[in-house]
Design a protein around this nucleic acid. Sequence first.
RNA 1: GGCCCUAUCGUCUAGUGGCCUAGGACGGAGCCCUCUCAAGGCUCAAACCCGGGUUCGAAUCCCGGUAGGGUCACCA
Length: 525
Amino acid sequence: MTVRTRFAPSPTGYLHIGGVRTALFNWLYARQHGGQFILRIDDTDKDREDPKALQPILDGFKWLGLNWDEGAEVGGPYGPYYQSQRLDRYKQAVQQLLDKGLAYWDYAKPEETKAEMELAEKEKRPKIYSRKWMAETPADRGRFEAEGRTGSVKIKMPREGVCKFFDHVRKDVEVQWAGEQDIVIQRSDGTVTYNLANVVDDFDMKITHVIRAEEHLANTPRQIFILEGLGYPRPEYAHLPFVAEPGSKNKLAKRKIPQYLKNADFKKVYDHAKAIADRIGVCAAPESFNPVLVDFYKQVGYMPAAILNALVLYGWSLKDNKDNKEEFTLAEMTKLFSLDQVNKDPASLDVKKLFAFQARYMQALPVTEKVEMVLPYLTKAALPQDRDFVTRVVEAAGPRLTVAGDILEYDYLFLPDEQIAFDPGAATKHLAAAFKGAPTVPPLADMLKKLRAVVAAAEPFTHDMLKAGTEALAQSDGAKAGPLSQVLRVAATGREVGFSAYDTLAVLGRDRCLARIDRAMPVPV
RNA sequence: GGCCCUAUCGUCUAGUGGCCUAGGACGGAGCCCUCUCAAGGCUCAAACCCGGGUUCGAAUCCCGGUAGGGUCACCA
């Protein structure tokens, strides 16, 4: 039997990283067994659905490389893959359940149900519906309808016995049927709910392994009741621990997303990304530009491989991992992944660790590929770009580029020379440091003139020659070369930080360096 | 509250009765390197929730506490 797994997002908002982790596990399992991964859209709740939410979710999966064999956009033999288009099919299943006496029409008003539940809560009893408004005969239905009530359909759960099932993560699970609620499967407006739609879809789409987050564990007995009532075979189950919110074990909640930014680690990762976003005018709404959402990483230039690698470690670890391997390519994960090695306790999201993975992946990337990643960011920031020049910058920046958007830190290399603002204060500070211990510190203008001469004379115009020239000058004037190179940096870039000052000059080229130093001169030469 | 689940450094985790004076990674601290910022190298601090058993021996098995979490929707 071919393994078929699925991920079924509901387009009610942004896709968070926990959802991606779950999708990844499904994807890995399907790929590992040569099966299919299906992307179905669970849009049964019209009220909560946001038509703009779907596309970013699909784009996110495409960007990550989690391709799907059937489902949204691509279609397939068991479609449609949008629940909103499958209503007739669901109705048919509801009718089947009704016919078998496994479901019933119910005429309780929402406030009546609510009152019962609240009373049960108060009296510390299990919250089980009294079936007071249950209508099992046409006569009962007529009576309730005469009162002006509209009916929904509920499943009639057994009130005794146990439901047993096997879960690949939690092993043998047993729950008392008596504790299970008669849940609504068809709303009074005629639409159906998740549990029904889900079971029907999984059957129709021939899903063999239901791999989903732990919050669905409680849905499993209901779904088993429904699918057995319908005569469907049971799929295999695996309930994954969820990715918890930062600094706690609570599950991630979309509405709490802005709050996660209060976490210190989040703040750091956010601030780093925000600086980039501001430069390229992403200007996303604060609640959607957040490290719990995949989009966040996509926008500032993280690598999918790094994210996936960080994510696979949430809840899964390699068995017999003697050499403590933590870095896995998608291909390796596909080969090594196993549901048996999934643990049971929730893992809180640590974005710093994700950032560290990104840093390592980026460092390992060949320069040409880094250049490709970085180019779009220069375009978005409206900075002039020339592939050769960009390549030189990327080479010189080395491990300083952690995400593609970091290239914008070096905007001063791309900006026209006349836009570089010289800071005499900063230059003076470094000049003083260069002459620390010496009886006198020469005027800045004099030193600038001498440094200009070094730049003008360096031949070839390389890091080594510039360094040699500056060192020679330092020696003859009784100064330290290091701080002196900082003076040069300030003159040529207007900045005090960056990669090696000599590399910076070499990348810029002699003409641009001279032009910038001339602009820094208090008196034109 | 009912039902269910979980419990190892701050975080992610290794660990399935002796290999554990508990290993790795992120983060933190320090040192080295150094023209700034990074990166890199070296070093350090840091955990088996508590209490009872079982056993020659327990982080590992059992029981009880405690703590945390999930779920109890005409959400998915």
